[in-house]
Design a protein around this nucleic acid. Sequence first.
DNA 1: AACAAAACTTACTTAAAAGTTAGCACTTAA
DNA 2: TTAAGTGCTAACTTTTAAGTAAGTTTTGTT
Lengths: 110, 110
Amino acid sequence: MEKIYKIGSKTFNCPVALASNVINGKWKLQIINLLSSAEKVRYHVLKNDIVGISEKMLIQHLRELEADGLVSRKVYPVVPPMVEYALTKAGKNFVPVISSLREWGEQYKK
Amino acid sequence: MEKIYKIGSKTFNCPVALASNVINGKWKLQIINLLSSAEKVRYHVLKNDIVGISEKMLIQHLRELEADGLVSRKVYPVVPPMVEYALTKAGKNFVPVISSLREWGEQYKK
DNA sequence: AACAAAACTTACTTAAAAGTTAGCACTTAA
DNA sequence: TTAAGTGCTAACTTTTAAGTAAGTTTTGTT
């Protein structure tokens, strides 16, 4: 019997392969990173703080993270629109990964 | 003045962006994961243990990890060939990231 | 009447990543 | 003489990711 790891409809044979798949995407880690800095973050804040990201990619990655259960989305029925993104439980569980990743990256500071 | 993070000829404005770039690639985390399981690992072991990877991608990712300074390569002049891959200092520094990633992934075990 | 704000959506193009198949080099063993 | 073992490389195709630019909605404000 083989160990099986599942998220949504995706199946993997090791936890690292699963995690790797979930964070695959040019901006995913940066999005999670920013979301981890506050309880909730509005769309335009994400857009402004992640340097270089296009709206298309931001939305696309947010939707994927939502589908994978790391991110939640709350819409307020106002005009102009207001949408807040936040980490779910699974997303918050991911924060230690981001922290160690950030710490690793710090060694390359110039 | 903006904080700048550099690895090779690549420049980033945040450590997470840098790390994200280094591990970008379908199999990179799995390769680092396997390399972290021993002092040195032979090419065919990597090839056999990472389910689904093609030789092209394995070599390509190994070369990129080498270029980014996480992996070292040692060739023994014998026949049939023998090549050992290992984590460098920077690669070993990355192991805590892999560990927390693996732990996060474990919650999806079925 | 036009414009601004916020959070998108759509259509399209380009670029990059990944997959496929085949082949090579060298030596030993069957 | 033929095959096996090991670690690749090259050429090519397919698939996926990412980028670009424009348009949409709703209401308040100038």
